[in-house]
Simulated scan of single mutants.
Amino acid sequence: MPSDHPISAATMKPGEDRRVLRGHRWVYRNEIHAITPVPPDGGLVDIYSAEKRFIGRGYYQQSGGIAARIFSSHQETPDRSFWEKRLRRALALRETLYPGEAVYRWIFGESDQLPGLIVDRYGDMAVAEFESPFYRQHLEHLVEAIRSLSAVCSVYVRQRNHAPEWYGPPVERVTFSIGNLWGSFQPERTQKTGLFLDQRSNWPLIRPFSAGAAVLDGHCYHGWWGLHAALGGAVTITACDTSSAALEQARENARLNGVEDRFQFEECPVETLLANASRQFDVIVLDPPALAKNRTHVKPAMNRYIEINTLALRNLRPDGILITASCSHFVDDHLFEEILKRAAYKARRRVSVLAWRGASPDHPVLLAMPETSYLKCVMLRVE
């Protein structure tokens, strides 16, 4: 239930409000001059400039560098109508992007004016993920809005430091379609919110190059790159992952689509498979998890990206295709381009860029917040 704690007021230091006034939704702790009264974790806080000009309303975070996340430029109360309005607006975009479909990222945090909240929909089930107690305080309104605006019956809620819980009948396995492919997963056994839907618009890139091809789907997770390769006519698809649970689900998805006879599953790091490969591939996909989760990880992440991309380039046949990705925000476009240049040099391969893509449009980028742009997905032709 919503807290009875009074709404706090935070005054920013002189000159520190420019970024927030331009639309950035985070207020850092070292930018605040004073805050009264000190709110509880997840409590409401109004942000003011040094000149006492109202900037926005958000929720407070007791720990970390970010003190407040702004969810409104007005003094809105997060009541039932607030949640319905936010979810309705976000839903209208997804229904325009994917007419007649029921699988998408419904809420993408700051870009949908609900900072720190992720909601993915899979037909009649949704998964919500957050960290702040703010969302737990308003969970009843959030779940009610999800159900009232869609055919969702069950919501699986994941919050850090809390056991996951169901709102509505528990779902052991959810089955759904994306385009003309079928997939499924077990919500209680999967990572994060289910699929990595940020690559949804990029998966079809592999199809035109898959006819008659030998494909390696590195970091395959549930196998969606491989499924699209099969749809494009791939002869063999080697699906590689270090997670036995992910490979089990990838195998089930191949079975659902009637292409399991073209898949071979390998439980090992993709570096190991590439270093010991006895044959070359026509198409290789590298889609690793985030290797740089903060700035201190950038250097080791850069070295690892160079290593795996070099190995992939060496294991491609002439005129082969490498689709390589990074979901690390701290590895920006310029750095990722430098990584690929170094890998091409080390592999002694001439490389051309065919496509440079970001996340699917149900992950909209807030122009004032570069943090909402994190995915790089690059298609390379290798001579």
Rank of each mutant, 00 (worst) to 15 (best):
R94Y: 07
G43T: 13
A92H: 12
R89M: 08
L87Y: 08
I47H: 05
G23M: 01
R94C: 07
R18N: 10
D17M: 06
L87I: 14
R80K: 14
S73P: 11
G65Q: 14
T96K: 15
H24P: 03
E16D: 11
V27R: 05
E51G: 09
L91E: 00
E16K: 13
G58L: 04
E95P: 05
I70C: 05
E95G: 05
L21H: 01
Y28F: 15
A92P: 01
Q62N: 11
S73D: 14
Q62R: 10
A92Q: 14
L91A: 04
S63H: 15
S63P: 15
G42A: 04
L91P: 00
G65W: 06
V38F: 10
S73L: 12
D41A: 02
S73H: 13
R19P: 04
Y28G: 00
A90P: 00
H24I: 02
L97E: 01
S63N: 14
L93Y: 10
W83Y: 11
R25S: 06
S81H: 14
D17W: 02
E51Y: 05
G15P: 06
G58H: 04
H24V: 02
I55S: 01
R57E: 01
T77M: 08
D79F: 07
G42P: 03
D46Q: 08
G58C: 06
D46W: 02
E51A: 13
Y60P: 06
E51S: 13
Y48F: 15
V20D: 03
Y59S: 01
Q75F: 09
R18T: 07
L93P: 00
R88D: 12
G65A: 12
I35S: 01
L97I: 00
R86I: 13
T77F: 04
I70S: 03
L97T: 03
I35T: 09
D46S: 04
G58K: 04
I47R: 05
G65M: 09
K13I: 15
S49W: 00
K85W: 10
R25P: 00
H24Y: 07
A67C: 06
A34C: 11
P78V: 03
H74D: 14
G65F: 06
G42L: 01
A34P: 11
W83Q: 02
S63G: 13
H33K: 15
N30E: 15
Q62I: 05
R19E: 10
